[in-house]
Each structure stands twice: as C-alpha cells, then as structure tokens.
Design a protein around this nucleic acid. Structure first.
Lengths: 341, 341
DNA sequence: TTGTAAGCGTTATCAA
DNA sequence: TTGATAACGCTTACAA
C-alpha cells in the first residue's frame, strides 16, 4: 500500500506537492500535476482517510441514527425508503454514511456520544423523533450539526433543524375527508405515544372533529406500537364497544393492514361496513385488499432533504436552525366509502 | 475537546501511560488507573478514532455493500431484515457499520475500492451475489476480508467466504410440494437473471420436475427484475399460453403479491384455479389474500452469520474461506391447493 | 511554483 | 510500573 511519500519519490517531487495535487491546488503547474497523477495511477495510490481526517478535523461522513430495534423500525418500509432518499443525496455530496447499531435507547445514546466525541462523523441525522429524547440536548450542547426527521419538542423548535411533514394538517385533512363521507363515529389508532408524529396526528384528528362540531369520544382513541399486531389489537378495542366507529384513521399503512385483516376475520366488510384510512402510502398499501386510501408523505423526499440540510449545517455551522416541511397528498383508493344508514 | 495529553497533564502522568490505561494494560498500577480514569471522566475524554486508526491500521468498521439502486433493493423487506441481523451481531462485536451509497454498479465498485484502499473498513459484507461481479476478484486481489450473502461463482467457491441458503434444495422442495399437490403444469417466475439465487432456484425447480418425470416446458419459465410489476408481467406471459400452468413458483414474496393481484384481476381464484408459492416469508406474505405458501429462508440469520463470519475473517486473515449454509423451512398457508380436474 | 518541517492524537518501542 | 520518543500518513505554514 503506497503512501504520499512513495508517490512523491517516484514523481521526483516533495510530499507536500503531491498533497497539493490531490487537492487540485491552482498553485501547482499543469506539468507537475500530470506527472504526479500518472504516478498515483501507476501505484494505485489512495489517500489514507485517517491521516487525512486527523489533520483536517473532518470526516465527510454522516451518522445515521436508527430508532431502537424495540420500536417498529426496520420492519416498516418507512425506513428503507427514507434511507433511499438520504443515500441518494449523500452520494451526490460525496458523503459517507455511518450507521448506529444500538439495540436499546441507552446503547444508542452511548453510540451517539462516541460518534461525536471520537470525531467519527461530521453531522448526524436522527431517523425518528420522540419526546424527551436525551440525544437532542446532547447534540446541541456539543454543537454537532444534526437534523431530525420529524420534529423536536416545542422547547427546541427554533434551535434544531428538522425535516417533517405537516402531520397535524395531514391528519386533519384525512379526517375531514372521512367526515365528508358522512362518517361521524370515527376511531383513531395512533402509533407510539411518545412519537411526535402520533401527537400531531391526534391533534389534527381532533381539530377536524371539533371543526365539524363532533364531540370527541375518548374511547375511540387508542394507541399501539407494534406494527401489525397493534392494528389487530386496536380493532378489538374499538369494535367491542356498544356503538363502534364506522371509520378509523390509522397511524400507518402497515398497521392498517393489520386492521384490515382483523376486520375481515370478524366479518366486517371494508369499506361497506367500515372505512379505513392511513398514512404513508408505502408500496404495500396499494396491494392490500382493498387497496388503502392513505396520505402520501413523500418519505423519500424527507430523507433527501434531511441529507441536504445536514450538509448545509456542516458547511456553515453558524447557520441558524432550519425547518423544511415536505408536502403530503391524499391518495384515494378503495378502503373508504360513504356511510349509508 | 480534550486529548490524551490533556488527560496526562491533569493526572500527572505521561501520555503513554494514559494510552495504557485506555487499553487496560496489566502493567499499570491500580492506583494510576483510577486516577487517570477519574481525569478522563472529568474531562469527558474520548480517544480520537482517526489518530488511533492511523497507528493501529484497523478501524473496527465493516463496510456494507448494497446492490445498485437499479436492482429491486430497498423496496424489498429482504434488505432491512438482513441488515437487522448484521446490526445485531455487529453491535455485539463492537463493530461499526459503513454503508455504500452508490447508485450504479460502477459507482459501487469505485466505492469499494475507496473503502479498501483508504483503509476505511476492516472488512466487507456484500448483500447480494450476481455473476461476473468485478468486486469479488478485486477484494480477493486486495486480500480484504469479506463475506458475500448468497454465493460466489463456482470459480471462487473455495476462496471466498459466504453465507447462503441451499437455494437449489429449497426450490426443489417447494416444487416437489407443488407436485405432490398433483400439479403438473408448473410455471417458474425467476428474479434477476444474473443473480445466483435465481440460477439456483431454477436448478432446483428443474431437478424436481425431472425427478418426477415431467418434461420441462421452456415457455413456463420466465424472469423478471421488478418487484411487483415483474410479477404482474410474468402472469400475463404465463397465462396467455394455450395451456397455462396450474401452479407457479415465484422467486420472491413481493413478486408473488404482484402475481396474486394480476391473477385476481384476471378472474382467476387462488388457490382454486391456480396455486402460488414463493420464497422468503417476509411479513407481508402472511397478510396477503390469500396468505402465501412460502419458503422461509431465515433472512435475519443470514445477516447475523455474515457479520460473525466477517469478524472471524478479520481476526484471522489467513483462515481459509468458509461457507455457512442457513436452513430453510416450508411455511404452508393458503395460496396452494390440490389440483382438481 | 515547490520544498521543508511542524503538527494532528494516538500507540509502541525502548529505557529507566 | 512508568516516561521519552519515534512513528502512522497527511496538510499547511513558511521559506525558498
């Protein structure tokens, strides 16, 4: 494995000259550059990243923090899709990606500390957002550039950068759609209770009901973490009531598949007996029976924007925090119909 | 940000002593260790990984190579699941994960070269295996420890380590199952033609037919890359024939969902009119209508074993190549039934 | 335009 | 058991 010195010697120049050629410094003559480059090719020379990072105090690597494995994560196509967006932009920017492997929340916090203190990464993308996440204050304290996908607590709203959907609005809209279909008894199946997306969905859901003058029935509101089983559980809770809902708003497409399955097994027909809507528009939502009416939130774009925002944060560390809101779009399919009495 | 020198000064020892404390060298007195550790805590000291990697010539990082985005990748739950296995084992072993971001095959080869030459990683896991992949000879030439998930070409069989299923056997078994259900006209929908898993599936499929004394009908064998659409396309090709098959063996659960959908839209009933089997047993295969009979290949285990194998390769570079075969298991559900004429 | 030399934060060798 | 000191491979003043 050759070093900069080998190249220098063979090219008959000083190591610093080779370094300048690598950086494509304008102060080096074309002739020298050519000669040095030839030698580099000949030797198959690649700069040692560690030596380079050591002096540069930068790594060109972004740390990607996954939620703890205990929480829905990799099973849900949300993550692969957001990663696809991040990957595309990172590749564009010549950034590398370093992944957290922690299985528990404590693990992950430790990993983040290590990433930052050991200078493993120049910036971080958090793929989730929950209340009271100790990682956010930590990153803030360390002045490490980072972006959260989702949103921080109100407390940090103006100091941390994030990429999010307007989940309140999205939930409000999808609920309004259900209301327009003449449904009045509408259930809400939220995700993990400490995720901001859940809180925001609930807020939008309630706004829609209130605006329609419909009283909020707390027994119609349930929460579940687990991806399919959660949906199935939730259906039991909702449908066991004396006057069950005629429509449900579900946190996530995958959970909605669980809902569909349980409903079907109970003998309900969707959408004739009960309408189902959800969020995310992952591929699967189109293939279910019936295909789901769902809110597309442009997951790929969330990832793409997060990567581009973290690049900006790294480039200008003094830049103030920035929020980017990605759009959403209702995709009408066949899991919803007008209520008939 | 404090360095080893700061710690040394504050603790009243030499930097080399601090280094020994970090390594928990037995030659350092307990008293000194305690004092140094206190100071490290006080200062919030973390070793700089680049300085360390520079002298150690090791990184404790594994490179993960995804297939090019043009090939089915992230959409398919196979990848998240295999990653989950890798992550779990890597975390255990205190290895970090560095991801490729390349979008094209050339991109990816370049990235691999950079990873290896720049000493970014100690070893590599290839998440796919295709014929004529230039990455394998490259890694071999560089003597970089690596493991492929899937298998290398026969040419390299004894020199590269891999973790695979016995895909020939698995395909043979699932085909035999279909044969036992009295089907004789059986279609085969393979995946990407240059993937070894496809070749092996086909081999097993044909073995089963031959053993049953059934002639192989080339018009019953089709290939498709794209995940759902491929399944749908394939159905058209297969069912448009004068005597269409009464059962199909599909490369992948997701593709099978496409198959199911197209079949349904054409008015065929599954399994009454036509039986469908596939491979992988991803979560979704249980939720389809009807739930799929599929071959579980223990994807998580593939990832887990790959990570543990690459660790071994890194630890003993002279160790000879090793193959690990993960089991498989037929999961009978409702997409198959006895042929009735 | 190029070369010399110091320094980035570690670890390891050799003395003490 | 501990301390000096020389690497590791690169970048960047500062000189030339």
């Amino acid at each position: 494995m050759s070093t900069i010195k080998d190249v220098a010697k063979l090219a008959g120049v000083a190591p610093s000259t080779v370094s300048r050629v690598i950086a494509d410094s304008p102060k080096i003559s074309r002739k020298t550059k050519e000669r040095v480059r030839e030698v580099m090719d000949e030797l198959g020379y690649y700069p040692n990243v560690h030596a380079r990072n050591l002096v540069n105090k930068a790594t060109n690597v972004i740390g990607i923090i996954m939620p703890s494995a205990s929480y829905a994560p990799f099973q849900n196509p949300f993550f692969p899709e957001v990663l696809r967006g991040i990957t595309a932009q990172a590749n564009e920017d010549k950034y590398g990606l370093y992944f957290s492997t922690g299985q528990t929340e404590e693990d992950i916090l430790e990993e983040v500390k290590e990433m930052v203190h050991s200078r493993r990464v120049d910036g971080i993308i958090l793929l989730y957002s929950t209340t009271n996440d100790p990682i956010i204050p930590f990153l803030l304290k360390e002045k490490c550039p980072f972006v959260v996908i989702g949103r921080p607590s109100e407390q940090y709203e103006h100091v941390v950068s994030y990429v999010n959907n307007d989940n309140v609005k999205a939930a409000r809209t999808i609920t309004e759609y259900v209301l327009l279909l003449r449904h009045e008894r509408i259930g809400f199946i939220g995700g993990r209770k400490d995720a901001y997306v859940t809180l925001d969905h609930k807020e939008g859901f309630e706004q829609a009901l209130q605006a329609a003058g419909i009283e909020i029935n707390p027994t119609y509101i349930v929460y579940h973490d687990e991806i399919f089983d959660g949906g199935e559980q939730a259906v039991i809770e909702l449908m066991a009531q004396k006057t069950p809902p005629t429509a449900v708003v579900v946190a996530d497409d995958l959970m909605a598949l669980g809902v569909l399955r349980m409903l079907t097994s109970m003998g309900y027909r969707v959408p004739e007996d009960i309408s189902v809507v959800s969020f995310n528009n992952v591929l699967m939502s189109e293939l279910s029976a019936p295909p789901l009416t769902t809110m597309d939130i442009y997951i790929y774009e969330l990832g793409f924007q997060a990567a581009s925002l973290v690049r900006e944060q790294i480039a200008s560390p003094l830049m103030e925090a920035q929020a980017r809101i990605v759009g959403h779009k209702l995709v009408r399919r066949s899991s919803t119909s007008r209520r008939i009495d």
